[in-house]
Amino acid sequence: MTDPLQIDARDLLCPLPVLRLRKALASVAPGSQVQLLATDPASQIDVPHFCTEQGHHLIRQTTSAEGHFLFTIAKAL
């Protein structure tokens, strides 16, 4: 398995983290994983909602000690 594509969306505000995620998912094969690193608190709501609406699988959502939000998403099959 290859390492997931990583997107750095730190310091970007809504809706930019989700737009970056959408663009990245469009460039990978179905079933591939993408990791998104964000600092916008709205991303905690926006990313899961985007995944649900588009059929992608939100594998993991964590918050670091520094307050960064890390999402791991698998592209819909």
Rank of each mutant, 00 (worst) to 15 (best):
Q6D: 14
M1C: 08
D11S: 12
A38N: 00
A74K: 09
K23M: 15
A76N: 15
A74H: 00
A38F: 06
L5W: 11
T72K: 10
L36V: 13
T72P: 05
R20K: 12
P15T: 00
G55F: 10
G31C: 03
F50E: 00
R22L: 13
T72Q: 10
T52D: 10
D8V: 02
P48F: 02
A29V: 15
I59Q: 05
V18G: 02
P30A: 03
L19I: 02
A29F: 08
F69S: 15
T52F: 13
H56P: 01
C51A: 06
S32C: 14
T52P: 04
L58T: 00
A74N: 01
A26F: 13
A38R: 00
S64I: 00
C51R: 05
A9C: 03
S32M: 14
P30L: 09
S64A: 02
Q33V: 03
S27F: 12
E66F: 05
G31K: 05
A9G: 01
L19A: 12
T52W: 07
Q6S: 07
A29Q: 15
S27K: 15
G55W: 04
C14W: 14
L70D: 02
T39G: 00
L21A: 11
V34C: 10
P41F: 09
T72A: 06
L70E: 11
Q61K: 02
K75S: 05
S43F: 11
I73M: 04
T62F: 02
M1Q: 09
C14L: 10
S43G: 15
A24K: 06
Q44H: 10
L25T: 10
P4H: 10
I59C: 08
P41I: 01
D40W: 05
S43V: 03
L25P: 03
D40S: 06
G67H: 07
D46V: 06
S32Q: 09
L13C: 15
L36H: 02
P17C: 09
L70V: 10
S43H: 08
H68A: 13
A29E: 04
L13T: 13
T2N: 12
F69I: 12
L5E: 08
P30S: 13
E66S: 15
P15V: 00
L58V: 01
Q6E: 13
L77A: 11
A42V: 14
E66D: 07
P48C: 00
F69M: 12
A9H: 07
A9W: 09
D3Y: 07
A24V: 04
A65M: 13
A29H: 05
L19N: 04
T62L: 04
C14G: 14
P17E: 03
S43Q: 05
P4L: 07
L19H: 05
F71P: 01
Q61V: 01
A29N: 14
E66R: 07
I45K: 15
D11H: 14
L36C: 03
L21K: 15
L37S: 08
